[in-house]
Design a protein around this nucleic acid. Structure first.
Lengths: 213, 213
DNA sequence: TATGGAAACAATCGAACGTTCTTTTTTTCC
DNA sequence: GGAAAAAAAGAACGTTCGATTGTTTCCATA
């Protein structure tokens, strides 16, 4: 046997990518074997090399494509939003929803950076830094305008992003709470955490959604 | 050659454990080879089996011992603290400092649970659940007494713990900010995020440390 | 000072790893 | 319909893996 009936390069490439993401998400990059990946898409392991240079570049392709998608979609989501508080809320909203729907990709991009060889690792870290700066800039702007109380924008940035990203560790689409409800809860947590309390409410009323239950 | 001069079982066991933690932290459990570990402590790989049953049980021993240590130290840190707000602050303080000083252990316990076979994984998850409940209980108490605004204590618990744990991704002991400064920043973020704003200040004044810089 | 146990070496196992290469089959296109 | 290109099979490679076993050396102690 050799070429399979109905085989198609583009379709196989997509299947490999998807299966690769799922396997790395489940078992980790190092723990995923190419034989495992091959059998998942119905190939022999050697045949995978039609589709990537080596295992390492498969990982990097996944990470790079994801980071580019993340950044461009975030820029799009915030492009028309003005004012630090609104930009902060837009970031929280976008980040949460993106992470709820792309758990596997996000997990890989965050956890498998250490499995990247140089210079791939440096490139991925730089992309992450660019993304983080979108939140950090909003915090700095808010502090400058006296709306936020953030003595250390860098620390707050890391803290907030960690908090939001953590949702992908437990969120399930069929869970009790809807995406909208979760976004509301997290937004309250973040906004109240950084807003200057005497001024925030007056400056731009933050909906105190759902006081209980 | 066979037994080395000055060799001592207890000392070797400790060295294996420490090197194991560092190697798993750096490269991940699956990526760490026993030959690597053995050479780190100056042994042949076969000799390691005097000190553990197999690679899997080495990981579980590390995770279990760490979780037991985490829980007992947390209980100790909060044993004399009364009132939801004070208990929340005590938890934040403890969790941050513990994670700043035990980065490797914490990282392993969080990230390598998926590398544990059953029933080890279930045991580790149950221990983590017990720990999380310490924070969740404080939040529920505060909500019941009208001090906190937490519509979903479970969600807030996950959110806060994610935020706090994230510090081990970037904290360096020789960094610009001291442990005390970082604890103060995070405490402000968390407390302001969950406190019922009109009541919190009056009920128990939260130090608004360092308004800027 | 002889002896039993502790500590580590050294050699080896079969399996699995990432990767390369050649061959075979299917599809596409002129 | 025949040739070129695409897609995949399949065999083999040198390594490395976790694990096992038998042996040698050191040390405490009686």
């Amino acid at each position: 046997m050799a070429r399979t009936i109905g085989s198609n390069g583009a379709r196989t490439a997509k299947a490999i990518r998807q299966a690769g993401v799922q396997l790395i998400y489940k078992h980790g990059y190092e723990a995923m074997s190419l034989r495992q990946l091959a059998s998942e898409v119905g190939l022999q392991s050697g045949s995978l090399y039609k589709y990537f240079e080596n295992k390492q570049s498969l990982l990097f392709d996944i990470v790079r494509d994801h980071m580019e998608d993340l950044i461009s979609k975030a820029e799009e989501a915030m492009s028309d939003v003005n004012g630090p508080l609104e930009r902060l809320k837009a970031f929280v909203d976008f980040h949460l929803r993106y992470h709820m729907t792309r758990k596997a990709h996000v997990f890989i991009a965050n956890m498998e950076i250490r499995s990247l060889d140089e210079p791939h690792r440096a490139i991925a870290i730089e992309m992450r830094r660019r993304y983080e700066h979108m939140l950090e800039d909003a915090l700095r702007q808010g502090a400058k305008h006296g709306v936020f109380k953030v003595p250390e924008p860098k620390v707050s940035t890391y803290a907030i992003i960690s908090m939001l990203t953590g949702i992908c560790m437990w969120y399930r689409p069929d869970g009790r709470l809807s995406q909208d409800e979760l976004v509301a809860i997290y937004t309250d947590l973040v906004v109240d955490g950084v807003a200057k309390q005497d001024a925030a409410e007056a400056a731009a009323p933050v909906g105190r959604r759902r006081a209980s239950a």
